[in-house]
């Protein structure tokens, strides 16, 4: 009997404590929640509303439009190419970035005398802002005076030609993601206890199996994080299209959902179109993120 009573009071005590901590948590979260409400949730809701409304060029809602904006957007002949470019960038960017950063991290993993030099070199792209990088790459890719054509002895048109424009953008976006992702991969690899790697050496596990069966599984949480953030970033790519491709004759070869949205929203003030495009990109990204969480369930090992 006494045990039961004790248990009951124990439970209410715990409950009271939990309510107290919950209150505290909300209080601590309040600033960011306010911030999010103003800058994230309101624009989001407004975008959803816009997509179903008739919006004039000043951004004022003039009436309910039903699915008209959607029909209009998906019916445009530049929508499908934009969708295709967006998906291509994600599909190429994410695996290549993962491959490059994991490889670089594996190469740089062992502490050597020159390690700080490699590490700094590989991490450098991080310190360059997207727009600065775009300007630099624009001059490097320049068909006539660019460094890349000169160095590799190429005669490619890069951003001025329909065939190569998307490749130029891909090279730039991949380069941009490498710095930070490399850093994440390297620190994850270095966090694996030395003794585990030594155990593979004593056990005669060859480097190939060590990498694929031990090291990569052990850094899988980081790989998953990089995968998700890269996916979102790739889906949202727009800066290179606007800064590099802007006035190029090949601009249509790289249009993404986001750059199309930018054009429609800021240049043409077609807010209905812009809203539908951003919601489409959002839903796509959401879908991929959910898919990657399925991957997480199966492949990601948390310590």
């Amino acid at each position: 009997m006494r045990g039961v009573v004790a248990m009951k009071t124990g439970a209410t005590l715990k409950h009271r404590q939990r309510v107290k901590t919950r209150k505290k948590v909300f209080l601590l979260l309040l600033p960011i929640l306010l911030f999010a409400a103003v800058f994230i949730y309101y624009p989001f809701v407004r975008t959803v509303v816009n997509s179903f409304s008739l919006v004039n060029a000043k951004g004022i809602i003039k009436g309910f439009a039903g699915l008209d904006n959607y029909a209009y957007t998906y019916g445009r002949k530049d929508f499908l190419p934009a969708l295709r470019h967006t998906l291509t960038i994600a599909a190429v960017n994410v695996p290549i970035t993962l491959f490059i950063t994991i490889s670089l991290a594996l190469l740089a993993n062992k502490k050597r005398r020159l390690s700080p030099v490699y590490e700094t070199m590989f991490t450098l792209p991080m310190s360059v802002s997207m727009s600065a990088a775009c300007m630099i790459f624009k001059s490097m890719f320049s068909p006539s005076v660019g460094f890349i054509n000169y160095f590799f002895g190429l005669k490619l048109g890069w951003y001025e030609s329909q065939e190569t424009a998307l490749s130029a953008v891909l090279i730039l976006t991949i380069w941009m993601s490498i710095g930070f992702d490399f850093l994440l991969m390297l620190s994850a690899l270095r966090a694996i206890p030395d003794q585990i790697i030594e155990a593979t050496r004593v056990d005669g596990i060859n480097p190939f199996r060590r990498i694929f069966k031990v090291q990569i599984p052990l850094i899988s949480p980081t790989i998953f994080y990089v995968l998700c953030t890269n996916l979102v970033l790739a889906m949202m790519t727009s800066a290179p299209m606007i800064i590099i491709m802007g006035v190029s004759s090949a601009a249509s070869a790289t249009t993404t959902l986001m750059s199309m949205m930018y054009q429609s929203g800021f240049s043409s003030s077609d807010y209905g179109l812009a809203a539908v495009l951003s919601i489409s990109a959002f839903l796509l990204t959401l879908g991929f993120t959910i898919l990657s969480f399925v991957f997480e369930r199966k492949k990601v090992h948390y310590q």
Partner: peptide, 20 residues
């Protein structure tokens, strides 16, 4: 000689098991 060619096995202080 590489560890693998010495025909030894080792037990580490922190077990060093493969956690995954």
């Amino acid at each position: 000689l590489d560890p693998k060619d010495r025909d030894i096995a080792m037990v580490f202080q922190n077990y060093a098991l493969y956690p995954h």
